[in-house]
Design a protein around this nucleic acid. Structure first.
Lengths: 241, 241
DNA sequence: CGCTAGATTGATAAAGGTCAATCATTGTGG
DNA sequence: CCACAATGATTGACCTTTATCAATCTAGCG
């Protein structure tokens, strides 16, 4: 059984839905997965496994929300198109993340697959009833959504910074956390996606990546992979705010 | 019984805890409060009412998290002090908002009263057990936290803008939503708080407020009150992004 | 092999940050 | 009751940074 799914990596095909979150209170065993095997099976019983292709739109904003999703494999982006034509990427979603939580029966953002992805799809009403009838399971969801709330607020801090270099470093750092601070980090999204996520122009993201590269802080084996060369300098740029 | 507490206004002294959120699915009666009277009483039974003075710190970041709070009256700010000495205000909290949800047993931010406030304080462990044993009540909390997650993502959009005028307009608009789009909006926080919330310098906030005033979009009867004069122009500034 | 979406680079201009001085408001103590 | 202190807000001058516009380059892919 795989406890922690690797971000963006392929999971074993028989894995049940997982949720990743830091709980309210310290767990007895820190490495324990959020969901128990029994809870995963209960969720699996009411879920449909859906495979989506890269670029495939899972749902569009302002449409009727019938389903909630948990990611098993792959990376999804959630975005909102503004009246001006500008696109706002509000989140990148990874394995063990939940998405599709509606507001008044309507989806708030459009969600689209970046890589090929495997999703667990839940009928919203069925999921709600299941959660209401199982306080422990629902509590896991509560932890998960709270976790995402904190992540959203951390993102806000990254976006509120004005220096492009620091924004980018903070973004890379957010992707670096799983698994435990490896030096190689996948960037499945395009530079343009990163720009609309960080509130920068595409050109600024490009200049910031080159700048980090020229300073010897990181290198890019290819466009969708970044390797941290000088962690100390990286940390200094990221935390100087 | 007061269903929707007015933001920042004084509530009747006998009101039970309330939660304000837009649910996942459209409610049968749209005006219904999130919590039933019975649920409020159940929460009241395990809560302590606490009165805090303006500027009083309710808890500090990185300290052990013993309690969760729901606001009955008043306005609270949550912030994080950065190593550089810069202060980051991550949220302003109003009546019917929850705060103090810990991460691994530690508070993530410092929370401080802006106005005098009345809080319902819950022992975290007791609240968790209560929620686990009452699926419907817990679901209300899940809706609430999800609601706050969406709000945080909306805030992110406001902060990602680069024009100070638009940021400020979006901020005022967020405060305007309750009660239903009145022209008079209270700004209990200082300009400096607004600046650290929006990722602007204090001077930029000041220039933006004066600019809105000079254009005849709004006026400030006093420093903690803004009145919208030209809603159409206001909306145009706020939504031009 | 050329096409195309994505990425890089350069020049220019607009916008907000920073520093510094001043003004306003509130609250306190004589 | 008034004066003064302290905090908060405003305004101006200058400077740094990023957006924008435009041209060019690169990597996949049919």
């Amino acid at each position: 059984m795989i406890d922690k799914l690797r971000r963006g990596k392929t999971a074993s095909p028989d894995v049940e839905p997982a949720l990743q979150a830091v709980p309210f209170l310290p767990p007895i065993r820190p490495e324990a997965p959020l969901l128990t095997d029994e809870q995963r099976m209960r969720l699996a019983a009411i879920a449909t496994r859906v495979r989506v292709a890269p670029r495939e739109v899972i749902y569009r904003e302002e449409t009727a929300a019938a389903s909630v999703y948990i990611i098993a494999e792959g990376v999804i982006k959630a975005f909102k198109d503004m009246p001006s034509g500008r696109r706002w990427v509000t989140a990148f979603l990874f394995p063990a993340d939940v998405f599709g939580l509606a507001e008044n029966g309507l989806y708030v953002r459009t969600s689209q697959a970046i890589t090929s992805a495997l999703l667990y799809r839940f009928d919203t009403r069925v999921l709600i009833e299941t959660l209401k009838s199982d306080g422990d399971l629902q509590f896991k969801f509560l932890c998960k959504v709270t976790h995402e709330l904190r992540e959203a607020q951390r993102q806000t801090i990254a976006i509120g910074r004005k220096d492009a270099l620091g924004k980018l470093a903070m973004f890379i750092r957010q992707l670096q956390r799983e698994p435990e601070r490896s030096v190689d980090i996948e960037l499945p999204m395009t530079r343009s996606d990163i720009a609309s996520y960080l509130g920068l122009s595409l050109e600024s993201v490009s200049r910031a990546t080159r700048s980090l590269e020229r300073r010897g802080v990181v290198c890019f084996p290819n466009r969708h992979m970044v390797r941290i060369i000088d962690q100390a300098q990286f940390d200094r740029i990221e935390s100087t705010i």
